[in-house]
Design a protein around this nucleic acid. Sequence first.
DNA 1: AGCACGCCGACT
DNA 2: GTCGGCGTGCTC
Length: 806
Amino acid sequence: MIAEVYVDIPASPVDKPFDYQIPEKLSDFVRPGMRVIVPFGRTKRLGFVASLKEESSFGKLKTIERVVDNLPVLTGELLDLGRWLADTTLCPTVSAFLAMLPAVMKAEYHKILTAENTEQLQLRFPRLAQLFLSGKMIEWDVIEKKHPERLKEVNEALDENIISLNRFVGNQANARKVLAVSAAVPRERLIKAAEGLDARSIRQKEVLSFFIESDQQLQLPVSELIKKYHFSRETLGRLVKKSLLKQEFIEQFRDPYVHRPGPPTRPLPLTGEQKQALTPILNSIEKSENRVFLCHGVTGSGKTEIYLQAIQKVIALGKQAIVLVPEISLTPQMVDRFKGRFGAEVAVMHSGLSRGEKYDEWRKIREGLVKVAVGARSAIFAPFERLGLIIIDEEHETSYKQDDSPRYHARDVAIYRAHRHGCPVVLGSATPSLESYARAQKKVYTLLSLKDRFNHHPMPPVEIVDLREEMREGNHSMFSRVLFNKIRDRLKKGEQIVLFLNRRGYSTFVMCRSCGTVIKCPHCDISLTYHHAGRLLKCHYCGYEERAPETCPACGSDSMRYFGTGTQKVETELNRLLPEARVIRMDVDTTRQKGGHEKLLRQFGEQKADILLGTQMIAKGLDFPKVTLVGVLAADSMLHLPDFRASEKTFQLLTQVSGRAGRHDLPGEVVIQSYTPDHYAIVDAAHHDYARFYHEEMQIRHRLGYPPFYFLALINLTHSEPARAADAAERIVSMLKNNLSRSARIYGPVVPAIARIKDRYRYQCMVKYKREPALFPVLRKISLHFQNTGKDGLQLSIDLNPVVLM
DNA sequence: AGCACGCCGACT
DNA sequence: GTCGGCGTGCTC
């Protein structure tokens, strides 16, 4: 038998199956979707078996060296999906395969030097010999990194066969080995040895009788013998030394993920609207219909309960479901809700798990031990074989698009898989993406609307405050008088406040008032943000930090001033103006440690603070009954970013933040501060009017030729030399112009808003198109042509249907 | 991605 | 005359 194998080299010249002979004894065993180790050129690589066949047109076949998996890690469906992903996102097929699997399944490649002739090595290359561990082995990488001056000797020694170079492919998933002890000799000899022991060797005797009484094959990890049976390491060691016991590394699985079982929950009674939305979904599930539903429900309309009851149906039919949520809303409360309803039938994939735990959750799915997978973007690849439903909550979130290769959108993958399985997809959002809503309008998707909040509380009233007017009237603070008074009022009443500002740090830039110099990152074309803790200037793009200078580095004057407002400055101001208010600040800087996010939210929920001040991350999912005021400090902060989706993002964010107020018995209200209070994104969000925003924004998209009217392809070029990047971009534009139809609009090369990131200069080209059969072939040609240009050289990336243009 | 093959400049 | 730069091509 012959296997067609994709080797683990993400480069276009090898992005095709290679034929390998399957060894006789493995011929019944190897199946498509398994990982194998194959010799490739003069190296060894991991590979994926794509298919089997009887004969190869290729003459001299090499043989598969090892099969990694017992059960194929990729099902037939996922193999097809991988090829489809590679086709539609222009990435190498292996990259698509690897993206569908937990990270531990990536191979590790080792190059090991072994001493063949220790004496010769000592004699001829004494200094090199010193590096060899116990005189025998060393990893090539160690020499390359730590002792590069010895590389020449390595090559000589290799030539003279004094040392040899061996490669092996490691597997992180199997790397979890643990030292275990077992009997080294037959039982009779153990008994005899026990009798012959010195009278004082009580402990050794105990260990021996343990092994005499147990199964002779028994292997127990040393850690368990110590912890559970209270033997000591020393005692075990002595018996190993006497060769009565033997030690070896065995593979051990982690303890299965034990979750504190929350209180089980039952289906809640549904409102009329909820029933109306749920019924068609249930029908589709029952009929195995491949339909896409767009569930447009205001914040608090009870979408989650609809999801839960739909999943219940899926499980009842013996099928499985995938639920995608944005990483940020994958909070313990959210997880508990699913665990509470479906108990041990849920696997949860989130970034808080270690790689090993993710692997275990994945295996539960692959082995059919669970029925539901809940997770962020990559959970869309959950290897279920009988999918009955896919749910994408907050479908408009940009995090569903992966921002490096393979640049896939989870929504597209969901629709592909649902088509394959014959099952419905439910997209849920209070603020659907224009793309999805437009499809619903065209009846490609089925629209389900939930206009009422679950508990019939009205949406909170929203007041827009014109900051220009505040300025004119002499208020230069970051709080308008209206907002400030309302904050004071809530503090007095003992109610809680959420303040939102989409900028972290203290000041957004530092400028010298005497010469106008703005301090910039030395590696990126962007100003540095001042952080008060440690008086540091930080780059939010590459992480560069420096001490804030006392005097201007350009002219030496001492008139450095801090401009722009970040969350830290707001916090300081709150403490100064309202010393009695207890403030929790939540942004990347205060939640960096694991679990920091939840800790702060719990404190706020327990009312250990009056004000929750934060960035993006507080916009979603929070539900605190005592919150009666939400303040948006600067609604314009995202509005003027150079991205055609800036208005959409602003509308979505404002709508979400507003949804945090008055969710329970206390009525809430919202104050939005803005310098452009008449902007439709702000006005429509204030009126909770999605339909109106949609119409206004669609007109603009139509006029400017943006999605959903046109498709986009974005080509990014970076190089350490600006001219080289520009040159490549120039050539790419002319290739596009020569190959595409007249109806395709080709833009560029342009320098993006941030012209340089991490010392690499950036250029972009863009294509807007409606139907362009020639596009993919040209893009493939381009990526082939501009690929192998070295490490420090040109880097090219192609993003189809990008979600961020910057 | 590696690695060999191959064709032109600065050294023993 | 050699050592070594990186352009081109191949890996079942």
